[in-house]
């Protein structure tokens, strides 16, 4: 528990304590779905209870090592928003202690809650935001931290209650592939809504995808699955849904398709056979080649 208090920092400054290799800093980036509609549809379980469990997770992650860091993002019709850390951080001493809680945890919890409340207050756009937006923001932030502090391992946890916007399928897949390239696993904690490409997000990046069957035990999922560091997960069998829906979305109709046509030039996916030329890149197909597309 050296990491929780300042002991290790003091020892390190004195050159007496070198952090072991496995204590490489780990950044946990939590993306919270704040679409009111999605939470409204959940029965017997609330946004607030979810946030309480999320806070336990954040605190636990911080407690594992004092090199660890967290980031929290919220997203809804207004788009994605950085919830924690905030640009202008109040000094630690301003935080009033309540009970026996560790001051830093308390400060983080308060900041997250306040920022989420502000986001909800300012929400005026009745729209669905694609997960591609917060994913991209989270990837950028993670990448920045990884560059500032080489050796940092990043991962993303998505707490989702709504389906993705079909028209943003391509952007979402692109951000998933970006995460895959950067070796940033995306964990998905699915409390409600449609599922399609979130399973792919977890599968491609090596994260865990769980359809939460017992929301009242949410903290248990967090503690026994999502808290585990990616480096450790390689040695474990992950708790992730075994079946992955690999279906793609038609670029034209935005429908999920099982069997479709793919343009050989721009790789766009079409539900129906194109009419002589590609509707996206306008490549003219030879008529003899069209039948062999399937």
């Amino acid at each position: 528990m050296d990491g929780v208090d300042d002991t290790s920092a003091v020892l390190q400054a004195a050159g007496l304590h070198q952090p072991p290799v496995e204590e490489a800093p780990s950044l946990l980036c939590v993306i919270i779905d704040t679409h009111a509609e999605g939470w409204h549809k959940l029965e017997g379980w609330s946004f607030k209870e979810t946030m309480a469990s999320v806070m336990v997770l954040l605190n636990a992650h911080m407690a594992l090592s004092n090199a660890n860091d967290v980031a929290v993002l919220g997203f809804n019709g207004m788009g994605p928003r950085m919830v924690y850390p905030q640009k202008e951080d109040a000094p630690l001493s301003d935080v009033k202690l309540e009970g026996t809680m560790y001051r830093q945890f308390h400060k983080m919890d308060k900041t997250v809650l306040a920022a989420l409340a502000t986001q909800l207050q300012e929400t005026t756009v009745n729209k669905h935001c694609s997960i591609s937006a917060p994913l991209t923001l989270a990837l950028c932030y993670t990448q920045r931290i990884m560059r500032q502090r080489p050796g940092t391992r990043g991962r993303i946890l998505l707490v989702s209650v709504t389906g993705d916007v079909p028209s943003k399928y391509i952007s979402t897949m692109n951000s998933i592939f970006a995460a895959q390239k950067a070796h940033i696993p995306i964990d998905v904690c699915k409390l409600g809504g449609e599922k399609t490409n979130l399973q792919q997000a977890a599968d491609f990046t090596g994260g865990a995808y769980i359809d939460i069957a017992h929301p009242r035990g949410l903290v248990q999922y967090f503690m026994s699955t999502f808290l585990i560091d990616p480096a450790t997960r390689q040695m474990l069998n992950q708790a992730t849904q075994p079946e992955v829906d690999f279906r793609a979305v038609c670029f034209l109709t935005k429908e999920v398709v099982e069997i479709g046509h793919v343009c050989s030039v721009c790789l766009c996916i079409m539900k129906d056979e194109p009419d002589g030329s590609c509707p996206i890149c306008h490549t003219v197909f030879e008529s003899t080649q069209l039948p062999s597309f399937t």
């Binding site: 769980i210 035990g217 949410l218 026994s224 069998n237 992730t240 849904q241």
Partner: peptide, 11 residues
Amino acid sequence: IAAQQQIQDLV
């Protein structure tokens, strides 16, 4: 316990 059961099934 129910949650842990689901996790264990998945594992």
